[in-house]
């Protein structure tokens, strides 16, 4: 089993930390994980991408070659990485314009809004995303995800980040039916 994630968006959205937490949670659950990144020279803005490969066995190549899960938090990221997807599913923020449409199933979730409105801090959107990706993919248990969040987020922000993770897990649980339907429709078409 090799599961590949690509987390894409804008620099400063914390996607690198999201990738680290996902990888660490998988290791916590006894799996192998490698996390890589690519980003522009800007401190904020510009494009940012983190990749996580999780496997039961050895991982010889560390980058995602054909992601099973693409997270796209911006329309730019969706256009850059979503349109070339031939398999897997795309999880976007609800604000992302799906134009032109992708070849693979897309599940749009209010990740950014959950952070900014429900939790009151836009900055924790990355941990909402970790909850969504962890929940939808099942690569790590909720408990391992919680431990990884606690290990990696700055001191004093644990509660807020854990709350964000739980919101993400809840979004994933609600979306699970959509994800299954999307994947099945896709399988029927291909």
């Amino acid at each position: 089993m090799r599961v590949e994630f690509r987390l894409s968006g804008s620099g400063g959205q914390g996607l690198l930390l999201a990738g680290i937490v996902l990888a660490e949670a998988a290791i916590q659950d006894g799996k192998n994980a490698v996390q890589t990144q690519s980003y522009g020279p800007e401190a904020r803005g510009g494009s940012s991408k983190a990749e996580v490969v999780i496997s039961d066995g050895d991982i010889d190549y560390p980058k995602a070659t054909a992601p099973d899960f693409l997270l796209a938090l911006t329309t730019d990221a969706y256009r850059s990485y979503g349109l070339s997807m031939k398999k897997g599913i795309i999880i976007t923020d609800s604000t992302v314009k799906l134009d032109p449409p992708a070849e693979v199933p897309v599940v749009a979730l209010p990740i950014l809004e959950t952070a900014s409105k429900k939790l009151g801090r836009a900055v924790v959107a990355n941990m909402v995303a970790v909850g969504v990706l962890g929940g939808v993919s099942g690569v790590a248990s909720p408990q391992a995800l919680r431990e990884a969040v606690l290990h990696r987020v700055p001191k004093g922000t644990e509660e807020l980040n854990l709350a964000a993770l739980e919101e993400g897990l809840a979004l994933a649980a609600h979306a699970q039916a959509d994800v299954r339907a999307a994947v099945q429709t896709d399988a029927a078409h291909s």
């Binding site: 680290i20 990888a23 290791i27 192998n32 994980a33 490698v34 996390q35 890589t36 990144q37 991982i59 560390p62």
Partner: peptide, 9 residues
């Protein structure tokens, strides 16, 4: 850059 920034178990 890849080896330096990559995280592994």
């Amino acid at each position: 850059e890849v080896i330096g920034h990559m995280r592994e178990k």
